[in-house]
């Protein structure tokens, strides 16, 4: 159970004009602007749910994920995941979550993937028997057997992403955060990732929180969608709610991407 109540987070962002002179001035006096990344955000996610967390770039998606995974501390508000506060009981909390950052790798670049997995086994102190069982299952479902002995740098992006997802699931977490897992993937890899995540959710009851800009990801994976813009929750509903709210002015139905674009413009959150 994930409970987020009235969470706010503000960043100080440095402001300066372009050019060398401005850069020089900024050495001595700086102007800061306060950016409210999250503004009174509340929601609850039950065990085993699959959530699509969407919003334009800079809406506060990554900040939310980082707070939920214990990386950042909010300025105010409370978060509990299975009764634990992520940034206070960091070590206990992160044992039961898995995080995939689509744009960053957690595998060691120059050595075979399996070596990275064995380090993870020791980091999470996974019992040997459970590790072999999990690895076997992940290898089969994500078709990794050919990849495990290859150094990460020689994998294609799609192959690497499959390995990344497996790396985040070796310790069988209860909650999985996927931050843009399909970014830059070809159609085959995207579908493979989606099928795998669906299955993981169905068979292991893993709670999945997914951020993406790919509407097909959302419609394939998430029954529930939370839309965030300018740090506020604007919609918490289903994919059909998005379609309806984002319909063209004439009222005729349109494709999902267009509906989202309409919705973003109408809510003025771009």
């Amino acid at each position: 159970m994930i409970r987020v109540e009235h969470v706010s987070k503000t960043y100080r962002v440095q402001k300066r004009s372009a050019g060398f002179a401005a850069a020089l001035t900024s050495l001595f006096s700086r102007e800061y602007e306060e950016i409210r990344a999250l503004n009174d955000v509340s929601f609850t996610i039950g065990d085993g749910e699959m959530i699509g967390y969407m919003g334009p770039n800079g809406a506060g998606k990554s900040s939310t994920i980082k707070i939920l995974s214990g990386i950042l501390t909010p300025d105010s508000g409370s978060v509990t995941i299975d009764g634990r506060v992520p940034w206070k009981n960091r070590i206990e909390h992160v044992k039961s979550i898995g995080v995939v950052f689509g744009q960053r790798s957690q595998l060691w670049w120059d050595i075979p993937v399996i070596d990275s997995y064995e380090l993870l086994r020791d980091i999470y102190a996974i019992p040997k028997a459970q590790y072999s069982k999990n690895l076997e299952e992940l290898t089969e479902l994500l078709a990794l057997s050919e990849l495990l002995k290859t150094p990460t740098r020689q994998l294609s992006l799609g192959q690497r992403m499959r390995c990344e997802i497996a790396a985040s699931l070796l310790h069988a977490p209860k909650v999985l955060f996927l931050d843009e897992p399909t970014i830059g993937l070809d159609a085959v890899s995207k579908i493979a990732v989606r099928e795998f995540v669906t299955r993981q959710n169905r068979e292991h009851g893993t709670t999945v929180i997914l951020t993406t800009h790919d509407m097909q990801d959302i419609s394939a994976l998430a029954k529930r969608v939370i839309l965030i813009g300018r740090g506020r929750i604007l919609l918490d509903g289903t994919i059909d709610d998005i379609r309806r709210e984002g319909a063209n002015p004439g009222g005729e139905t349109t494709d999902l991407d267009q509906a989202v674009a309409n919705l973003y413009r109408r809510l003025d959150i771009l």
């Binding site: 206990e92 992160v94 995080v99």
Partner: peptide, 12 residues
């Protein structure tokens, strides 16, 4: 490079 994020999500 943001790699410290990864360190924080591991139980060590």
């Amino acid at each position: 490079r943001g790699e410290f994020d990864r360190i924080l999500v591991r139980p060590r």
